[in-house]
Amino acid sequence: MSGLVVRDLQVVFDGFVAVGGVDLTVPSGDVRFIIGPNGAGKTTLIDAITGLARATGAVTFDEHELLGRKVHKIARLGVGRTFQNSTVFEELTVLQNLDIAAGWHRGPLTLLRRRSSVPPEVQNALETVRLTAVRDQLAGTLPHGQKQWLEIGMLLVQNAKLFLLDEPVAGMSHEERDATGELLGELSREHTVVVIEHDMDFLRRFARSVTVMHAGKVLSEGTVAQVQADPKVQEVYLGHPVEA
């Protein structure tokens, strides 16, 4: 089946079970939110899928097995991710950041020459993530929200089919959140999107399906309404005074 399929995934650090047997299926075109209290294993799950954390079990994306592959090989299969703290290249311009993200398949001759024009996919991404106006600005000078958009733009030009976004709207203003939500909607037309998020309001507005994790396991899964109605979820998560 196409999309992301995770079977019995386990990640153990020095005897501590960070992810203990997770099964997860995210079909193509879904916008899946993964929520859960701190330490539930959400980021570790993404680390395992992208090759950063060693894991056992099985992870396939569009029928390619991911576990055991190196990070950059997994990226070449169309799996892209962002990080909680944005990790754009601060001393390069927005354009340079995007151009690099678009280029892993370039040959030595292209690499040794200067970039003579803006590649069309980079131009499209600039418009999609609304950064055309700050194209030649150093990425380090961008406000937080725009850095996160730049990260998403980098995934776009990288030709990622699966977007794994780790808290993309943390620290954003309301307007920025709304804009990011719209962006996720646009992305989902051609991509599969998985979002780790704490912001319940954001989740209710933009999630198509939700997976709740707790203590390294999947606690509940379904639509926003189904998950909210699940007594197990209410007990560990929504039961706490989250403005419901």
Binding site: L52, K70, V71, T87, F89, E90, I100, W104, H105, Q158
Partner: peptide, 16 residues
Amino acid sequence: VAVRDGEERVRFLGYD
């Protein structure tokens, strides 16, 4: 320069 400032990040873009 990208590798200098973010070696791990470059990996996630498909480069070694």
